[in-house]
Amino acid sequence: MLELRLVQGSLLKKVLEAIKDLVNDANFDCSATGFSLQAMDSSHVALVALLLRNEGFEHYRCDRNISMGMNLGNMNKMLKCAGNDDIITLKADDGSDTVTFMFESPNQDKIADFEMKLMDIDSEHLGIPEAEYHAIVRMPSAEFARICKDLSSIGDTVVISVTKEGVKFSTKGDIGTANIVCRQNTTVDKPEEATVIEMKEPVSLTFALRYMNSFAKATPLSHTVTISLSSELPVVVEYKIEDMGYVRFYLAPKIEE
């Protein structure tokens, strides 16, 4: 028996909006500690990891570990039927091949349930070891989204370089080049507006902007984004979900031919 009641149902709606274009089908894993997902995009270039911890749910019952295969496009269609203020409850019986999404309006005057068929997904799970990163940049998520969008109108790839001067996002294309430098800036009114750069070593890596723009769809989940870079590792773009967990995107770099 599985029953997860999320008062802030809009969080789940935002999570699906953030990952549905990157991943078509995925297994959602539910255990006593939380609701999670790990999935690669179809070309195995990027990986998404989601964690929603049990304590973030108003009610969390998961009697045994369960993996539920879902088509994210179909799941998104169902979650779009929930209001932004609705409470969302996920329910599944042991051995069932369906999951039920229940939507309750805040004043309980409307209750809807949507039953979705589960699917068998043969997905590969990757072990991601804890890593020391050469540079970690925390910045406003909207700023990062804006930079990725702007650069993608000029070129296909972004070079992210972290030095003592700041973090530089560069691209080049047929029409010209672009460089955007963000300096550390902690003298702001609100902490979420700060740009904070922790650098152990300078690092410079190249990534496909198409994926970065896809990750930026998680912007509504968090005011800030954390970008962790190491010269021999995929970049980690993390959006923290307040009090609950995170959505992390891992992207393999491009190397020179």
Binding site: M40, S43, H44, V45, A46, L47, E124, H125, L126, G127, I128, P129, D156, T157, T206, A208, L233, P234, Y250, L251, A252, P253, K254, I255, E256, E257
Partner: peptide, 14 residues
């Protein structure tokens, strides 16, 4: 531009 590496080149299947 450049060769796109796969995420599977970095992390092992569990």
């Amino acid at each position: 531009t450049g060769i796109q590496l796969s995420i599977k080149e970095f992390y092992r299947a569990t």
